[in-house]
Structures are given as structure tokens and as C-alpha cells.
């Protein structure tokens, strides 16, 4: 606790609130990642940590670092550029990576013929690529909406 002793309470309270909010949401997301049963359920859980978990912690850091104090011993003051860059980059890259990962999992499940996975939709502008199920001459499997997809 070097420089944090000189903070006034009206700065410390929102910083502590956002820190606790962000870390709790990240912990809840990781808990969902460990506890949920299916991969397609688990795909949604960590986004709790990358959206509001990261936003809370970065907001706390921004509030703390923008507090202007000309006292000696204050070493934390700097522009909030790091938090902005981290937040914008995380906001851009998280949907891209999880979308790619979901498509990869869907591709693998179709090739392995896991039951409950919807088949590929025919599109006019995309050439047809037979997956493992359809390459044997069978029809695409019936989609059972009532049942949860693939236990693994």
C-alpha cells in the first residue's frame, strides 16, 4: 500500500466497487466454464469475464489513474491509453475468436456425426462441401429440438 493511502474515499469507493464487480463476474464466467455440461453451453460462459468483467476492472483502473493529485509519492498517474487499448482490443477480438472456435467445433461435430448437431444448410453462393455424414450418401440427420445436443 504505497500510494493508495493518499486516496480520498470518493475515489476509493467506486474503484473498489468496479474491482469487485469485474472480478466477481470473471469468477462466475469461469465457474460456468467449469460446470456447464455441453461445449456449446460452455462457449457462452467466459464471455461474462471478457465483457463486463474486463470492463469493470478496466473502469476501476481508469478512474484510479485519472485522479489528478500533485502530491509527491504518487506514482500511478499516467494517461489511460493502456486501458482503452486493452478494452477496445478485447471487445473486437472476443467475438471473432469465439465465433471461429464455435465454427471449428461445429465442423468437427458434423464430421464425427454427433447426434443432435444440425446439418449444413445449402446455400446458392457457396459450393457444396460434403461432410462426413453426407459423404456416405445418407441424408442429413433429423434435428431433435427437444433434446439437448451431444453429451460429452
Amino acid at each position: 500500500m504505497s500510494y493508495l493511502d493518499t486516496l480520498p474515499p470518493w475515489i476509493a469507493i467506486p474503484v473498489a466497487f468496479f474491482l469487485i464487480l469485474g472480478s466477481t463476474l470473471t469468477l462466475l464466467g469461469a465457474f460456468g466454464l467449469a460446470r456447464l455440461r455441453d461445449f456449446y453451453d460452455r462457449l457462452h460462459a467466459p464471455t461474462l469475464g471478457t465483457s463486463w468483467g474486463a470492463a469493470g476492472i478496466l473502469l476501476a483502473s481508469m478512474i484510479l489513474m485519472s485522479w489528478n493529485e500533485s502530491e509527491p509519492g504518487w506514482s500511478g498517474l499516467r494517461p489511460v491509453l493502456h486501458e482503452l487499448v486493452i478494452g477496445i482490443f478485447l471487445m473486437i477480438t472476443t467475438p471473432v475468436t469465439l465465433m471461429l472456435l464455435g465454427r471449428a467445433a461445429l465442423h468437427r461435430d458434423r464430421i464425427e456425426g454427433t447426434p443432435g448437431i444440425p446439418g449444413a444448410v445449402e446455400r446458392a453462393d457457396v459450393p457444396h462441401r460434403p461432410t462426413g455424414e453426407e459423404a456416405d450418401g445418407e441424408a442429413a440427420p433429423e434435428i431433435d429440438i427437444s433434446d439437448a445436443p451431444g453429451e460429452n
Partner: peptide
């Protein structure tokens, strides 16, 4: 006061 809050958080 604020050091306690920040330390806990």
C-alpha cells in the same frame, strides 16, 4: 479508510 477499502477490494 481508503487504504482499507482498496486493500480489501
Amino acid at each position: 479508510m481508503s487504504a482499507v477499502i482498496m486493500s480489501f477490494a
